[in-house]
């Protein structure tokens, strides 16, 4: 053991020099943005003389943690996020000397509730979704009871008589946060006295609207969306929650449920009519621009129309592009590195 540590120390001294001269961009962050980020990285590596950036999938929170840990070659240059950066994370960045960050919004991702293509398609409202999946549901004015709904029919008589069984991501996932915020809170707001809570007791409001039941009706299936798709294929009565890109790639095996009368389709997510969709971002450390070769060029590749445009290669991977004026704005900001959020 001692010997190993001594050797390690020796080697570390030797390799410390190597760490100083990093010649490729390092990207961390969201697993939802990972497929898009890697596609751009690969294109960038093949079409320029720069090395291909290294992309790690750490989750939005994990990525921002690494990103905000400091300035210098030991820390990543870019982090992907499936949600906007939080105030607490900005503070942490600032504390560690990361004082200037550029935010780039790259497009949208729809979150779908899907089931096997062999089963009939489900039509739901967000309120029904909330009543089916919330931990506690309101029963009368100001009263909460543990969710008694066993079948979809219990939620609403118009729904099929099937046991509620939803496979979805665990609490560490950005997809889960977004699902709770967009789908469940969206439905929860429809109940008047709960909506009133938002003003009077914000914490309670959040606890009611964002808590997902833990009695077995919602099954945490890990971060592996491929696994969820396979399980849905095997069990036509179950539903799964995952990103639109997985639905897009597996349209022969699973189908997305219609929510508030809108099916999760490319056009519906792009124009905002599909209610459960969220923006995706990446953040760039301005202090690294010029120090690490190729960051500007990578941004230029990402924000070019052939990448993130409606006909770009990211659309083929399932990214839902932003409207043109929004794209133009972020492209300009990325080129000038002045969309500083600090």
């Amino acid at each position: 053991m001692k010997k190993t540590l001594a050797l390690a120390a020796l080697a570390a001294v030797t390799f410390a020099g190597a760490a100083e001269a990093r010649d490729q961009i390092r990207i961390v962050g969201s697993s939802t943005v990972y497929p898009f980020s890697t596609t751009v990285a690969e294109q960038f590596g093949r079409s320029t003389s720069f090395k291909t950036p290294v992309v790690e999938s750490t989750g939005s929170g994990g990525g921002l943690k690494l990103f905000c840990s400091g300035v210098g070659v030991d820390h990543p240059d870019i982090t992907n996020a499936s949600r906007a950066i939080k105030k607490s994370e900005v503070d942490k960045c600032q504390k560690n000397g990361v004082t200037s960050i550029t935010e780039v919004k790259i497009g949208y991702d729809g979150i779908v509730l899907a089931n096997s293509a062999k089963a009939p398609q489900m039509k739901l409202t967000r309120k029904q979704l909330f009543l089916a999946l919330a931990k506690d549901v309101p029963a009368g004015e100001g009263k909460l009871i543990p969710n008694p709904n066993k079948t979809w029919k219990d939620v609403d008589a118009s729904l099929p008589d099937l046991k509620i069984e939803v496979l979805g991501p665990p609490p560490t996932s950005g997809t889960r946060d977004a699902f709770a915020e967009l789908a469940l809170e969206g439905g929860c707001k429809k109940i008047k006295w709960v909506a009133a809570l938002k003003k009077s007791d914000k914490n309670k409001y959040k606890a009611v609207c964002h808590s997902i039941r833990e009695d077995g009706a919602y099954v945490e299936a890990g971060e592996n969306d491929v696994l969820i798709v396979r399980k849905l294929e095997a069990n036509p009565d179950a539903f799964g929650v995952f990103g639109y890109s997985f639905l897009d790639q597996n349209s022969d095996k699973v189908q997305g449920s219609v929510i508030e009368g809108v099916a999760p389709e490319f056009e519906a997510i792009a124009d905002g009519s599909y209610p459960v969709s969220r923006p995706l971002f990446f953040y760039v450390k301005n202090a690294h621009v010029g120090k690490i070769q190729g960051i500007k060029e990578y941004l230029a590749e990402f924000t070019s129309n052939k990448a993130w445009g409606p006909d770009g290669y990211l659309a083929d991977k399932g990214l839902v592009p932003m409207p043109e004026d929004e794209r133009k704005r972020y492209q300009r900001d990325a080129a000038n590195m002045f969309h500083n959020i600090m």
Binding site: M1, T4, A8, A9, A11, A12, V13, F15, A16, A18, A19, R22, R26, V54, E56, D74
Partner: peptide, 21 residues
Amino acid sequence: FLNFFGMPRSAPVVGGFVLAI
């Protein structure tokens, strides 16, 4: 290896050290 000695991330040498231990 990474935080104290400042060795490069994702490098086989660090992976080798960790797996050696």
